[in-house]
Simulated assay, not measured.
Amino acid sequence: MAACKCVFNVTLGYGRKALFSAVARNVNVRGLSSCSIFTKYVSRRPIPLRLPFRWYSTSNSSVQTGSPKVQGLADEILKKQISESANKEAASNEGESEEDRKKRESSWKALKYTFLVFGVSFSAIGIYMLVEWGAPRRDENGEVIHDEFSDMPLLQQYFLRMLQEINYYKKMIRDPSRDKLLPDPLEEPYYQPPYTLVLEMTGLLVHPDWTYQTGWRFKKRPGVDFFLTQVAPPLFEVVVYTAELGFTAFPILDALDPNGCIAYRLVRDATRYVDGHHIKDLDCLNRDLKKVIVVDCNPNSVKMHSRNAILLPKWQGNDDDRSLVDLAFFLKTIATSQVADVREVLDFYHKFDNPLEAFKENQRKLQEQQEEMQKIQKKQQESRSSLTGSWAPNFLRKT
């Protein structure tokens, strides 16, 4: 049998599959139908193939692979495309790495300069503190005052005096500004109210509001005037104790209390700073804690004396609020009852989520009981009067 050889014109496609458009051209005189590979295909039909591929003939010759020229051409095309793509990627990576390297160098240089500036600044501040705060104190005549560090080496003296000053300023920030925040209770012939009422300003008496047009404004809570007049002396000694700064709190309190119901004002310097919170230390009030009630809306502010506290929800600025009216009746009831230790009463109301609602419910029940007792007493009086009226004529009749 004569060999039937097939010659392929190869066209390389794109993508992961290599698409080859093969055109068969029969060089045998027997025609295209005698070629076993293309018996089912028409002439010039594209055939998709995958690399690597082999071409076979119908002869028994020893040639088993495709044409080396064609295969070499395909390999060269593939290698050329792969090398071009690799060169492009290498170029892009080289460009990116060069740009990244420049950015990294600039950022590292800026970081070094920043550390250098901070190092020089802190060193200068440390030297200034050591020289200024560590120097021995002098009297009005310029003589050195002998202290507990005077007999130590010079450098140690300066260092220990500087630490003493640092601890002093830390204590100023952390502790209240004085041991007794309030003066001693008044004595005869002056009148001292039996109870002390400590109030928070922000969230209890006023609500802060901020807008772009007006800035910060403080809205007055409904019922403030009624509340202050009800708890003012002779029932309570009213103290405003807030974490606000003095230049913020004093103008607000001046407008809030024109009648002078508030006896004392304590601001942020009177608080104790612990764990990021300004805490109201009632031990520094110079008052008997059995007669002190603090009203607040922040539990962290009164966590050192929670038994003396009445916690209310923070007022959000709504105009239909009447909590201060209920609070006034609650406090007035405690004061008029002459309670020996207010903490015992407050311990009972701490069981409820809303102490004022619980107090109102107890007052309602008490009022119902009083009305019921009045009805019973009235019936007893009517029965006694009827018995007396029926007994008197009979007695007169017998006599």
Rank of each mutant, 00 (worst) to 15 (best):
V7T: 14
T11I: 05
T11H: 10
R16C: 02
L32S: 13
S33M: 09
S43W: 12
P46W: 12
I47T: 10
P52Q: 11
W55P: 01
T58G: 03
S59R: 13
S61Q: 09
Q64A: 05
G66A: 12
V70I: 14
V70A: 05
L73V: 12
D75E: 06
E76P: 00
E76H: 15
I77S: 03
L78T: 13
I82C: 00
S83E: 07
S83P: 01
E84M: 13
S85G: 05
A86R: 14
A90F: 03
A90G: 06
A91G: 10
S92Y: 11
G95H: 12
R104N: 07
F115C: 11
F115T: 15
V120R: 04
F122M: 11
S123E: 00
S123F: 11
G126Q: 07
W133P: 00
R137S: 10
D139K: 09
E148N: 13
L155Y: 12
Q157D: 00
Q157H: 02
Y158I: 03
Y158T: 02
L160P: 01
R161A: 03
M162D: 01
L163N: 10
L163F: 11
Q164Y: 06
E165Y: 13
I166A: 07
Y168K: 15
K171Q: 08
R174T: 14
P176N: 11
P176F: 08
S177V: 15
S177G: 05
D179V: 14
E188P: 04
Q192N: 13
V198G: 02
V198P: 00
G203N: 09
L204A: 10
D209P: 01
D209W: 15
T214G: 01
T214V: 06
W216D: 02
K219T: 13
K220M: 05
P222N: 05
P222V: 11
V224S: 06
F226N: 05
F226G: 04
P234L: 09
F236D: 02
T242D: 00
A243S: 15
E244A: 15
L245Y: 08
G246S: 13
F247L: 04
I252W: 04
L253H: 08
Y264F: 12
Y264K: 15
A270V: 05
Y273C: 02
D275H: 12
I279C: 06
L282R: 12
N286L: 02
R287I: 04
R287G: 03
D288K: 09
D288T: 08
L289W: 07
K290Y: 00
K291E: 01
C297L: 04
H305W: 03
S306Y: 04
A309G: 09
L312V: 11
K314E: 06
G317L: 08
V325C: 01
A328G: 11
F330L: 03
K332I: 09
K332H: 07
I334F: 01
Q338H: 13
V339N: 02
A340V: 12
A340K: 15
V342T: 13
E344R: 15
V345W: 02
L346P: 06
L356G: 04
N362G: 03
N362L: 11
Q377E: 05
K378C: 01
K378P: 00
Q381C: 00
Q381H: 03
S386A: 14
T388M: 10
T388E: 00
L396G: 02
T399W: 03
